[in-house]
């Protein structure tokens, strides 16, 4: 089981590296799906089977498909890949990469020196999560409802296109 965990972790890290180095958006999103699926395997091995299902349905299913739909709506030109290559060129990669990798090595050093115990496998199923969610965390559920409502209203308001009427005399922007 430990081997499975390490293989899934390696796939998650490698596919995430592929996501952040691609020039084509659709290729990056496909690697992102692989990364989410590998993390779902990790969740299952940690005993969070319900969360593993949610990860596949919501992250790999809904959010990635939403981004793909928006890319289809934008109708990007073929030159956008070359444009992306142009933006990624040069030394802009080096500074942030070195600093972030130094921080990561420090994190490795700190965490590996603390000496923690292992995670025993306990299957925490959807019933345990639901009992906790609608028991002590019910205020969080209500706040999530308000957040989703404002998200829907905000997305509708921001995404609305203004209809433009082009005419010699009647040039105006209609709401």
């Amino acid at each position: 089981m430990l081997t499975t965990f390490y293989i899934a972790s390696a796939i998650a890290v490698v596919s995430t590296i592929m996501v952040i180095t691609r020039h084509n958006l659709i290729h990056a999103l496909m690697y992102l799906v692989v990364s989410f699926l590998a993390i779902a395997v990790v969740f299952y091995l940690l005993g969070a089977s319900f969360i593993a299902a949610l990860e596949v349905i919501v992250y790999a299913g809904a959010i990635v498909v939403l981004i793909i739909f928006v890319i289809m709506m934008l109708n990007l030109r073929a030159e956008s890949v070359d444009e992306e290559k142009e933006w990624m060129k040069g030394g802009i990669l080096i500074g942030p990469s070195v600093l972030a990798i130094v921080l990561l090595v420090e994190l490795f050093y700190i965490i590996s020196n603390v000496g923690m115990t292992g995670v025993e496998y306990h299957d925490l199923d959807a019933k345990a999560v639901g009992l906790s969610l609608y028991g002590p965390y019910v205020i969080g559920v209500e706040l999530s409802g308000i957040l989703l409502m404002s998200g829907i209203v905000g997305a509708y308001h921001l995404g609305r296109q203004k209809k433009k009427i082009v005419h010699r005399f009647l040039e105006k922007v209609e709401e």
Binding site: M1, F5, F108, V114, V119, E120
Partner: peptide, 13 residues
């Protein structure tokens, strides 16, 4: 079956 995954590995991931 029961198995043990190190916490450090999960946090480092």
């Amino acid at each position: 079956e029961k198995h043990t995954i190190p916490v450090e590995a999960g946090l480092l991931l």
